[in-house]
Design a protein around this nucleic acid. Structure first.
Lengths: 206, 206
DNA sequence: GTCTATAGGAGGATAGAC
DNA sequence: GTCTATCCTCCTATAGAC
C-alpha cells in the first residue's frame, strides 16, 4: 500500500478534476436555472458558460433534464446540510432563520426554483430518489418545528402544518423579492426584512 | 340610414365573428399560458385547441409574443373592469376582496402568470402601452387603498406601500395555491381561506 | 381570412476522431 | 473525456392556393 500508492493518487487526482468540472457544470446550470427557468435555459448556453463543448457536457449528464435535476438535487442537499448544521434553538426561531436563509439564496440568484407549471422536469424530480429523499428529510425537519411552534402558541394553530410548510417553501421563489430588488429603492437586508415581516406578521396591522 | 342598413349590418356581423374567434384564441392562449407558461406553450397547440389552422392564428397575431401579450392585456383589462365595478367599501375590505378574487382566478386556471424570470415576453409587455396603462391604473387604485388602510391602522404601516402592493400581486401566482390543490386534502374555499389568512394575518400567532 | 404545405432556424442529442 | 461537426426533431413563421 506504500510503494504502489502513486497510481491510486493519480487516479484520485483525475477523479477530483472530473468532480470539479462536474461541480462547475452544475453550478452554472443552477445559476441559469434561477435566471431564466428550465425551458428558457439552453444546454449550449451552459456549456459555453462553463467553457466546455456541449458534447463534453453530455458525457456527464445524459440529458438536459438530468442536468437540471442534478442542480435541484444539489440545492436540496445544501438545504439538508444547512438544517443539519443549524445550532439548536426554539422552533419558531429556527423557522425564521431558515426562511431568511432561503430568501438570501434567492436574492443572490442561487435558488433554481422549480417551475410551478407543468413541466417534464417535475416528473423527473418526483422519480428521483435523491431529490425526494432530501425533500422528505427537509419537510420532516421543518414540519416538526412547525408543529412544535404551533404547540407553543408561536405559529397560528388554525393553519394546517402543511399550509405553513408550503408557505415557507414558497419564499424560495417569491417574486416580491426580485420586484423589490429591481425597484432599487431598498437594499437586500431591507427587502428581506420586509418580506419576513409580511410572511410571519402578515399585512394586517397588529 | 334605414334603406342601406343591410350592408353595415352584414359587415358588423362579419366583424363580430372575427372578434369572437379572436376572443377564443386569446382565451385558449390564456389558459395554456396559465397551465404551462410562455416557453412551454406552442402556437400549434393553441391553434389546434381553438380548432383553426396555425396560419389563421398568425393572421390575428403576428407572433407568439404578441399573442401572449394580448392574453396578458386581457387579464389586466379584466382586473380594471373588476375594480371599476366593485361596490364601494372600506379600503381594507376592498383589498381583501381583490386578493380573494385574484386567487379564485388562479385556482380556476384563468390567471396566465407572467414568468418572473427573464423573458422576451417581459420586454414586450413593458413596451405595450395597453398593458402598462392598465397596470398603472390598477396599481393606482390598489395603492390608494393600501395607503388609506395604513392611515386607518388596518395595514402594517411599517411596510412600504409598494411592498404591500407587490405582495398582493404575488397572490396571483402563488404556488401554495396549486400545491394545496394538488394535495387534495382541502376544497378551494378552504385553500383560499388559508392563503388569505397567511397573507393578511401572517404565519405567527396573534 | 382560412386552409395546406413548407421554409427557416434553434436547440437537444450523437458520431467519430483524438 | 474532450473536441468538431453533424443529425434530427420541434416550433415559429410564411407562401400561395382558394
Amino acid at each position: 500500500m506504500a510503494m504502489n500508492s502513486a497510481s491510486p493518487a493519480k487516479v484520485s487526482f483525475k477523479a477530483q478534476m472530473l468532480q470539479a468540472r462536474e461541480d462547475a457544470i452544475i453550478q452554472t446550470a443552477s445559476r441559469l436555472l434561477a435566471e431564466k427557468g428550465f425551458e428558457a435555459m439552453t444546454v449550449d448556453e451552459v456549456a459555453a458558460s462553463v467553457g466546455i463543448a456541449k458534447a463534453s457536457l453530455y458525457k456527464h449528464f445524459s440529458s438536459k433534464e438530468d442536468l437540471a435535476a442534478a442542480a435541484m438535487v444539489r440545492v436540496m442537499q445544501r438545504a439538508q446540510a444547512y438544517l443539519r448544521d443549524l445550532p439548536p434553538g426554539a422552533p419558531m426561531a429556527q423557522l425564521r432563520t431558515v426562511a431568511r436563509w432561503t430568501m438570501e439564496l434567492k436574492l443572490r440568484g442561487e435558488m433554481p426554483s422549480l417551475p410551478s407549471q407543468n413541466s417534464t422536469l417535475r416528473a423527473k424530480l418526483i422519480a428521483d430518489t435523491a431529490y425526494m429523499d432530501g425533500l422528505i428529510d427537509v419537510s420532516d425537519c421543518l414540519g416538526a418545528w412547525i408543529e412544535a411552534a404551533q404547540a407553543q402558541g408561536h405559529i397560528n394553530a388554525d393553519l394546517p402544518a402543511i399550509a405553513v410548510l408550503y408557505t415557507l417553501y414558497a419564499r424560495a421563489c417569491d417574486p416580491v423579492l426580485e420586484f423589490l430588488k429591481m425597484g432599487g429603492q431598498h437594499d437586500e437586508e431591507q427587502i428581506i426584512r420586509m418580506v419576513m415581516a409580511s410572511c410571519f406578521e402578515g399585512l394586517a396591522a397588529r
